Simulated assay, not measured.
Amino acid sequence: MEIGFRKAQAEDLAFARNLYFETMRWMIERLFGWDQAREEAYFIGFFRLDEVRIITVDNRDVGWIQERLEGTSIDLGSLYVIPAMQRQGIGTQVLQMLLARARSQSKTITLAVVKINPALQLYARHGFRITHEDAYKFYMRADPRFPDKRTVG
């Protein structure tokens, strides 16, 4: 299985949108109830084509990642893998690639994850630690320069 990335194009918007709704809908319904117009507006508000890369496996589109550079940090805004391809190590490999790049650039990685999202365990296994929280999300940080560091300062 060869995992790669390609720059997102305008025609990838529908793929990204559909995958976001497919993977997040149950969480959104549970927390807020589903309002299609609200969710469409939310998606368009955070999706930035210039920050998105499509995740490929053997040249097949299987997900997408969105990241933004913010000073000495990479903000991981989104990481989605199609359900049929989940639990096959794709998210793990994508995170490992991102952590390696952050390490080589002397950057930390930050993200926010919905508290009921099973991906929370994936992030914790890869050294992300909770820095703070709000009613719905944990905010996490990893410093790949210090992989054995268990607390965030």
Rank of each mutant, 00 (worst) to 15 (best):
N59I: 01
R6E: 07
V113K: 04
D143Y: 02
G63L: 10
Q86K: 11
R125H: 12
F46P: 02
A41H: 07
D148A: 11
S73R: 14
T56Y: 11
Y123V: 04
R25Q: 13
F138C: 12
S106C: 07
A14F: 09
A124L: 11
L99N: 01
R103K: 13
A37N: 15
R38K: 15
A142P: 05
K7A: 14
G45W: 01
R101F: 02
N117L: 03
V152T: 10
Q86I: 06
E51A: 11
I55S: 04
V94W: 08
V113N: 09
R101C: 01
F138G: 05
D58P: 06
Y20N: 05
L49V: 03
S104H: 08
K7N: 13
E39Y: 03
I54V: 15
Q93C: 04
Q36A: 14
A124I: 04
R141Y: 05
A10N: 06
L76E: 05
R53Y: 10
L79S: 08
D50T: 12
R60E: 09
H132T: 12
L98F: 05
E67D: 13
D134P: 08
A102N: 08
E40W: 03
A8M: 03
R38P: 00
G89F: 13
R60L: 07
T56M: 13
M85L: 11
R125A: 07
Y80N: 10
V114T: 12
G71P: 05
T72H: 13
M27H: 13
R53P: 01
D148E: 15
I55V: 15
D50N: 14
A10M: 02
V94Y: 08
D61C: 11
R38E: 12
A16Y: 04
M24G: 01
W34Y: 14
T23V: 14
A84C: 00
A37I: 05
L19S: 05
G71R: 09
